[in-house]
Design a protein around this nucleic acid. Sequence first.
DNA 1: CTGTTAGCGCCTTCAG
DNA 2: CTGAAGGCGCTAACAG
Lengths: 330, 330
Amino acid sequence: MTSRTKAGRSTIHDIAADLGVSVSTVSRALTPGGTVSPETRRRVEEAAGRLDYRANRAARSLSTGRMHSIGLIVPDLRDPFFAEVAKGAQMRARSVDHTVYIADTDRSAELEFEAIDMMRRDVDGFLVCAPLGDDEALREHLRGTAAVMIHRELAGLPSVTSDLASGIAQAVQHLHALGHRRIAHVAGPDSSWGARRRRAAFDREVSDGDRVLLGPIADPFEGGVATADALLASGATAVIAYNDLVALGLVTRLRARGVSVPDGMSVVGFDGLDVATLATSLTSVAVPRQVAARSAVDLLLRALDEGGEPASVVLPTQLIVRDSTAPLRR
Amino acid sequence: MTSRTKAGRSTIHDIAADLGVSVSTVSRALTPGGTVSPETRRRVEEAAGRLDYRANRAARSLSTGRMHSIGLIVPDLRDPFFAEVAKGAQMRARSVDHTVYIADTDRSAELEFEAIDMMRRDVDGFLVCAPLGDDEALREHLRGTAAVMIHRELAGLPSVTSDLASGIAQAVQHLHALGHRRIAHVAGPDSSWGARRRRAAFDREVSDGDRVLLGPIADPFEGGVATADALLASGATAVIAYNDLVALGLVTRLRARGVSVPDGMSVVGFDGLDVATLATSLTSVAVPRQVAARSAVDLLLRALDEGGEPASVVLPTQLIVRDSTAPLRR
DNA sequence: CTGTTAGCGCCTTCAG
DNA sequence: CTGAAGGCGCTAACAG
């Protein structure tokens, strides 16, 4: 039997033997705060490199209790919004030697809870993207585990959100500046935290007489398609959609009806997805995703290390003006 | 000190104590092939449920050497193609009690290798989505670790690919049936395995005189936009794009030039992405993604368990006819 | 500053 | 069929 495990990987024992020191010395030399002589550390590092040593996470976790990994709960990876969150979280985590377990819950609150229960033991904490689902149940399943909410607030838990109210305000001001008065909003599902926030902001920014409220829709793109006719009938000259997919649905149906965008109708999306610029150059409110995910990772790790108060972060949103909005023609 | 670890989780010791049996009995009862009396197993399972027991993966891994997790290498999670692969892999893995570590390599071959080296020790094997990158280097970094390639063949390794040649053939036949003769192909990067395959199939399916080859392009959407004018100048009446994003770029520029799609130009995409149907109802060759990922997971686990010969799978592709292709007008 | 000694939670011989 | 014992690779007191 050789002194190496399968896959040709060596352990601290190999390094210790190679150098004629004890394994604990090696362990300390390899630990950031370890108290060893500079010379020893140098030799250990040299040997580690030479022997292609790589720490066994399982062993480390077992002994320290820290798994060096975090769980990411997302409703649907196919949605570019969440794909970017996943990308950001994963990259940031890797840069600080953590891995992320992604659980795609397929837009089911059931699976969401199940995934949390399943992974709880194998991660140090959670990043939760769960726009839907009941507050109480969610809090209950998260009890006893560190967690930070992304794009949703949940009392008592740290969160990273974006300034949706400002985003809506920017959109409304943009439309007002273009001369539009009667403005519609196609609302997202009431069960969504973000949809409620956008809608509330819209109610605040547009005065009663000018305000047209449509929706709520369920499926984004098809919901947009299905709402376009009501939009035309409403007399609004501009619309702010719940998100970019809804906006694309609206644009598709409007054009099919022979209504030009932006000349016949100004359309503002929300999220700032790349796909929204692909075939349709959509004016949209950009919502940070990778940055949000990175911040969430940092927040979580800080909470784990220092155990401070749950801090929350609100990231700015930014209106991106493209070709789907134009001055009101009279 | 209580008998439970943090996060309120119990161990097999708790179950053993609760039942007055030994930990090894509990361990066996909880192991599929374990040899215990049916009665004992029943009691153990009851207690496990009652005490909310959940096995500690780190401990299990340390003792068995199996990590119960697999690494997924993808170039970019933002690309809906890979997001779906990730989703499929993750869901299938979870259903067989495995987790997947996703490494987004940000389209860098460097990061690809780095990620493999980094994770090698913490996973049982890899699922590799690496269309780019050198064969030899990739094989070298994968040496000694189980791996299955997705959407790329690499001699000596099992793979899950799709029948790109058939997809191209279907597209060409469709266009021929519509009366088109002069057909163009906008090729993807030569460094991409899939791009080379599509192009070779195109060369085979379209006779020399009728064939127009454009590209290769680098950035998909912008590449499509940039190639549209050459397409028009080529005299082709139909085009098969490297992928859907390229097709969308083409359509965007064509329309800007005042050329109607499909009346002035028939456009076929490749991949069958949802985004392609959003604003543009694009005819496209659907390439399986979630299914491919699921198969890859199965292949990997089977190889790990049985260590058989590296089997490979080729999944079918299917032309989806929508509104971007029409009969040739003469 | 370094070596020795105990585990972390689980699986796996080996006896009984 | 079940219990006792040892070890997976690493970290964390505790002595020296």
